[in-house]
Design a binder for these strands. Structure first.
Lengths: 201, 201, 201, 201
DNA sequence: GATGAATGAGCGTTCATTCAT
DNA sequence: AATGAATGAACGCTCATTCAT
């Protein structure tokens, strides 16, 4: 019956929502299963019907939200590409980067949650999960194709760009160290343009 | 009497050694104080004579080992500089980077330990601790001066380089994803050269 | 289902019984939660399902047993009042006192437990708890009304009488110092009669 | 050598002073030997050269300070008796009581410290200790003799008076329950006069 | 499928006491 | 006599997990 399936999905979503809120609020280590189920209005045992343990729900959430950020960024980008706003791939990537940084800046606890947990491996696993979004790589890929430019080692290039953004923004956004975001941004954009050039065929 | 002081230092060293081994083997969260003192052949209470809690010994170890890596790299570099091996700062930085990566590759659990815990703030605090070494920034600084080249925003530049190295090497060293180390290295080196150029005055 | 509720009540009762025995035997400070649950044949965690900490069960027991003593004394008194045994309020109060002293004498560890912990504030809080008995003040009140005599500052009067009884009996019952109980009693009764007179309007 | 004896007495006094301050400030259970010796500027081991354990120093302090209160009260009284200020024993006892209550009121943490720990047995042991003061009983005794009145069962009488004062003042001073001190005092004085009359021969 | 009472190993931390110096 | 480093049992408390209902 579809209704049962629906109810199960609702339960799972409720658990995910509660866990995400608590994880970002107080950290994963300081959040207990008890608190999650309490917040989700469920019995403790129910949690274990949907997730093997606390770490499964943790990984799920990282992948989910990391993907969400790219999705949102791409959504905005897509409109602009269609409207031929950008002269080059470089400009589009910079725009994408800016969009991602803006999202992270607007939600620091989300950035904290994702950043230190986001490993390259997670992206490739996102598809396995039950939300059928495009992932980060596809987004870049389609972007690069849209401008029909040829880059070698596309995956490595994207990897280096993503890691550079993530790594440099972390301290800057959370602690304003060693510089403020508005000081980092222009240099980061130049560095990304250079990385793109570096991988041109 | 000096003998007591000596014994105390030995105890502290034993605790640091045991903690480091266990932290790198099983992670900080999965290592208990009980295990540390057991490994160090001490009573539980003794731990608290030397460290306020698990996190104090953790921070101590991060700063200590991060510093050690730079020190070792710089030691080698120093000899080469004296012998005028390098034509430019760029070459020297690349050499330094290579040396650091080699160390990380040779000790993956150390890399794992440092990488996810190393925040920019830690560097500035290293001096405070009781080993009076030069730190990362000083090393770069003296390097740059040695070649009397002028760069703007040196701190930001170093920050971006260090974060790029750290971030890109993590997955590559630990999971060989998305490429192997020997595939990453040349591109990383080019990227670093570009970053240096970007900050030339 | 009622069965679960019943089992929970049984568990709580078992904890209370074990705690009371250990508290009176060895004192509150020398009794650990571990010992209580061991005596009650339960896991340590179970204790914390029923009481916030050691002090909650402690307060519960003080109030409970203090109330119990008054209740028992009043029960007997009630019958006698109905049978018009007493000529005056004074006689009834003396009877009540005697009855309370007898109970304390029969259970010295109970007396020790209650005496040093019983503060005036506890009485007013007894009602809050889940046994809905009359408390000390109500008992005296109804007694005084039964004989329709008017006293001023009833609460202060009762306070002074109760404290006098409690304070003088403590050393006498536990250490027979400075006199034996049978030497104290007549003088205590006279003193109480004088206190009652003192507060007549 | 006398100097060594003197130094030892100084150390003991320092420990007593530190312990008393900490006991009254934070309670006996929340004060550790570590804190006492730290406050007294001594090594931990030194404590055990002077006291068997924490409880020995505790008992010592109770007896000492309880005695001190009576002493102070008597000192004042003595002058007044010599000057024939009082017409009767009753008046003198009331004065003594007032003086004791004033001291307790002026130092609530002292009152808290003494009150619940003061047992009749402590008084008789005071003499054993190394401060050779008169104790409570002697004070009353000499008072009664000064007025050459005859009371029966003097010890019991004093016991009841002292316990009544102590017991009724405790809650009133600490929590103002069930009445304020100025409401208790007149009634307490009347009750004491009645007790004295009760024991007249 | 859902519950939540029960578990108990494990946590970090304290501290009275000992004893080599 | 004085020290203070070392001890380790014991503490209160947490919480992931189980399982009878």
């Amino acid at each position: 019956m579809g209704k049962i399936e629906e109810k199960k999905k609702e339960k799972k979503q409720a658990l995910l929502a509660s866990a995400f809120q608590l994880f970002t609020e107080k950290g994963v280590d300081n959040t207990s299963v008890s608190e999650i189920v309490k917040d989700a209005n469920m019995a403790k045992g129910t949690f274990y019907l949907y997730f093997k343990d606390k770490y499964e729900i943790h990984n799920y959430l990282i992948a989910y939200h990391a993907n969400l950020i790219f999705e949102k960024a791409y959504e905005i980008l897509d409109h602009q590409v269609l409207e031929k706003v950008f002269d080059s791939v470089e400009d589009a990537v910079i725009f994408l980067t800016g969009s991602i940084i803006d999202q992270l800046e607007a939600n620091l606890s989300l950035m904290k949650f994702i950043s230190k947990n986001l490993s390259w491996g997670v992206f490739s696993k996102i598809r396995i999960m039950d939300y059928d979004n495009q992932n980060c790589m596809d987004i870049f890929d389609s972007l690069l194709q849209a401008f029909s430019k040829k880059y070698r080692q596309k995956e490595l290039m994207i990897y280096m760009i993503v890691e550079l953004i993530n790594a440099t923004c972390y301290n800057v956004l959370l602690y304003r160290e060693p510089v403020r975001l508005d000081e980092l941004k222009p240099e980061l954009f130049v560095a990304i343009r250079n990385l793109l050039k570096q991988f041109e065929e």
